[in-house]
Amino acid sequence: MGYGAAIQVRGIAKSFGEVRALDGVDLEVPAGTVLGLLGPNGAGKTTLVRVLTTLLAPDAGSAQVSGLDVVTDAKELRARIGLAGQYAAVDENLTGLENLTMVGRLYGSGRSAAKRRAGELLERFDLLDAAGRPAKTYSGGMRRRLDLAASLVAEPPVLFLDEPTTGLDPRARRGLWEVIEQLVSGGTTLLLTTQYLEEADRLADTIAVIDHGRLIAEGTADQLKARIGGSVLEVTLESPESAPAAIAALDGLGDGEPVVEDGLVKVAVAERSGTIVAAVQRLSAAGVGVDDLVLRRPTLDDVFLALTGHAAEAEPA
């Protein structure tokens, strides 16, 4: 495609009335890679996907997908992308086979070619047994797989998945992750939005963190984790009442203030060596009963908290 970038975004802004959903976003996704767009509800993830899939015109800025402009080349662009949204957009009264055949024909294929392609996809997504049943009889995970299959009908070089696993149970989520991993191993460029840090960590080559319509960090999972540096000491107390005593005892041990979160006392520490011994000595001297104590690498949750000042999944829609 001559660019090396399958998706290129420059200064995209979009407001809905007073709300600035996107506030000047710049982004580049090299061909054949997976970008995880990570952010809480309302951060602007879906708006960006809608702009890049031509569903929404931006107020400012420009964006190219596969070298085609999202505004001026919208029509040609639609033939080169696949989109699966958060809604599992399939017709519930049509069977799996009918749904995929319909999408194929709307991409311009003839009936028999569309049907053949639908059969291939149903087999690949393990839906062959359910092919003749209306989609309303499918489980949540099956519907998402059908939706994903529908986005792949035309074998698009660039794929957008907007929160593909939101609302799925853990087993269905892992199943869908495996499907997506197989998919991108074939060279498809993927932009994936998610509020699950674990999901971005597992699927994405690069992660872009978005909040209030702005990109606030970009890098690999390891780079982002390295940004907050060091490790996290987590202490599980025997009794929650001793939390203030534990905080007082651990104050000054690490770089940050000790905090209580989910019943755990957490401290960010830069230097690993000697930390555990020092922590045990301090807590023991203060008479605090300890149930468990670990020193771990930071997760993307810690990163998100450090970058935005709020937890990733807590904010309501």
Binding site: R78, L83, G85, G108
Partner: peptide, 17 residues
Amino acid sequence: RKGLIDRFRSLPMSRAA
């Protein structure tokens, strides 16, 4: 409401169809 119109609009099909 169920997102089907979004899917149709992301396809290279006629806008009136």
